[in-house]
Design a protein around this nucleic acid. Sequence first.
DNA 1: ACCTCAATCTGAGCACTGTATAGATACCAA
DNA 2: TTGGTATCTATACAGTGCTCAGATTGAGGT
Lengths: 202, 202
Amino acid sequence: MNAKAEKSGYHHGNLKSALIAAADAIILEKGIEGFSLREAARRAGVSIGAPAHHFGSAKGLLTEVALLGYGSLGDYLNAVTESDDPARDLRELARAYVAFALAHPGRFRLMFRPDLVDRDDPRYSAASSKALSGFAQAIGRRAGAGEDRMADLFSVWSSIHGMANLILDGKAKYLFDGADPQRFSDEILPGLLERAWPYGKG
Amino acid sequence: MNAKAEKSGYHHGNLKSALIAAADAIILEKGIEGFSLREAARRAGVSIGAPAHHFGSAKGLLTEVALLGYGSLGDYLNAVTESDDPARDLRELARAYVAFALAHPGRFRLMFRPDLVDRDDPRYSAASSKALSGFAQAIGRRAGAGEDRMADLFSVWSSIHGMANLILDGKAKYLFDGADPQRFSDEILPGLLERAWPYGKG
DNA sequence: ACCTCAATCTGAGCACTGTATAGATACCAA
DNA sequence: TTGGTATCTATACAGTGCTCAGATTGAGGT
């Protein structure tokens, strides 16, 4: 009845979003390396060749999932309410960034895999900068804002992104001898932020 | 004649290291995603099933390449001579780290891919900590060394590692609007390091 | 109501991939 | 010389992404 019926026989009716959802689910369950276009098609109850028409290639489908991922990251970051203390905001944003990476490792990894995502898709850079806009604003609002805010943003992003990656890749666990990720982001991370950024102090 | 002959017919004589070299070469040419166990076997002039005996699986072979990678990273970092200014040393080490990542992106990416490398191999953590020992020492030597040096190391490593990853994944190019990597590491990076670390000042 | 047309999906096929296993080969030690 | 064993080959299996001719269907125009 609906214009986007669940499944009406030969024509799926909602294949595109069904495939995106299936891909996202696979990545959630098995990680990026466990993804396959064929299994996404299988889960959507459709033949092997069907996805090609909507996405061109596996990269096309994964690009859509990555866009969802940036949206999801944006949700995490937007949940940080803006205060009159930009340094605090920055710290909370950082925690949210790492929390997202730990909660959605598959999405997070996909979002930064240039071989799996079409970086030339204009929506990609748009989604990326939109998700990070909170960081950019907090940096702009902080006391004694530097002249080169792009460099500041990149510096902050590097620290946070590096932490997230090292934790996900098991390097933190190795350095701190098996501290579990949750305790890590709650207790160790804030201390690291103090250490890593001059801004952390005020 | 040599115990490790070049190629003596049925028995290769030097297959293990030949396969490692072939894999490293493939990764150099086509990146991690371009690697295949079969092509490594082909380049070594050997049948498809031969590598299994030496490495068990593709992961086993890639683990050896990753170990080489850590050795190579160690070479970059060890080329930084120790001075009486730990802050300068730290900065130079950071530049060397990023320089390695840009010069050997395939190796660098492989080294941090838990799905492609056997993290349980004791040589892996050994190679990792050996390569990073320069960082650890510089941090230990700096004036006003903190109580939690592991956290300091992790903080520094995060910043540098994040920068390297963001640059490799094309995020820096996007932020700085197409600055080429060389200019980036020469001009922009030092400024970022100043920003990222309190230690940078002395 | 019909009828064309384009969008959608199927099914088979191609060229790959990693892994497992049975058997051939050749070195090495007794 | 003779086992024995490490090494390597050949083949097969299950899986992958992608392509393309053809079947199917819903929608828009007459």
